[in-house]
Amino acid sequence: MAERSFFEEQGVDLDDVAERLQSEDADARRIAVVELAESGEPAGEALLVAALRDPHSGVRRAAASALEQFDGAAAASALAEALLDEDAEVAAAADASLRQFRAPEAAPPLLSLVGHERADVRAAAWRGLRGLRVAATLVPALRALDDVDAQVRREAIGALAYLKDETTTAALIRAGRDDHLEVRRAALAALAFAPASMILEAILDGLADRHWRVRETAASLAGRAGAAGAEASLIAALADDVWQVALEAARSLGRLRAGGAVVALGALATHPVSNLRKEVAAALGEIRRHEALCHLSLLAEDSDPDVRKIARWSIHLIDSSAR
């Protein structure tokens, strides 16, 4: 019986697509590219690579998007070249596709672009390299931390962070003092993999940063890394002008079970922002100190039900740990 009428066609007729890709009409070529992309046909890769050189930017863009499914050396080479396309949308599509890649074989063509004269190309190359997690990126990425362009430095941190290599710690700490806000934030976030003892200084610097988003990131890092040495600075951060920083500090003090923070946390029990009071209630529970109960009983009568819930739960935690 005629199965064809019921089911989508399996695969795709490559000869037919190849012929249509030679059409005079750019729209016909574009439609052929889309069909090829959807077929998932592995043998279609070469045709899509060729379509990246199409005179019509719409066809090139469709081909660049379609190549995201061909994680490997050939597609990576072609897409790396497409990062230089004169049409910004084609380059953006190539950038997006490269970010899907995981195969280490995709690295060489991207590494060859990390020294490119255009900063946006260098940044895109680093974005593509991050997910590949290849050791060969380590040295050039460290070098890229001194790039003149902030976006490049930020993306290079991403590639380094995925490697989780302790030898990069010092360089990332240095990047934590970068002029650019987003670079400092990324560097601090990247350090979460390193042992607390190695990154304490960066955390303390970050907590003293001039921009609140960096202080917020540093406060969060302290808890994630288990940096007990940051306790005093975190307590100071509870008084930060920006409540978001105080909130992360409270969360980290809870994680660190910082017994010395109870009084300072308690002082925030009447803070106007309920998100912060909620975090304070949670932290006091995690610290599990009896002297927190007076603050928690106040928080258990808070006007905000989330704060009350957490406070009650924290009281329960303290009660049950005392038993």
Partner: peptide, 10 residues
């Protein structure tokens, strides 16, 4: 290739 939120370290 489904993208979930990852931290800076992946």
């Amino acid at each position: 290739g489904v993208k979930f939120l990852k931290d800076e370290n992946g």
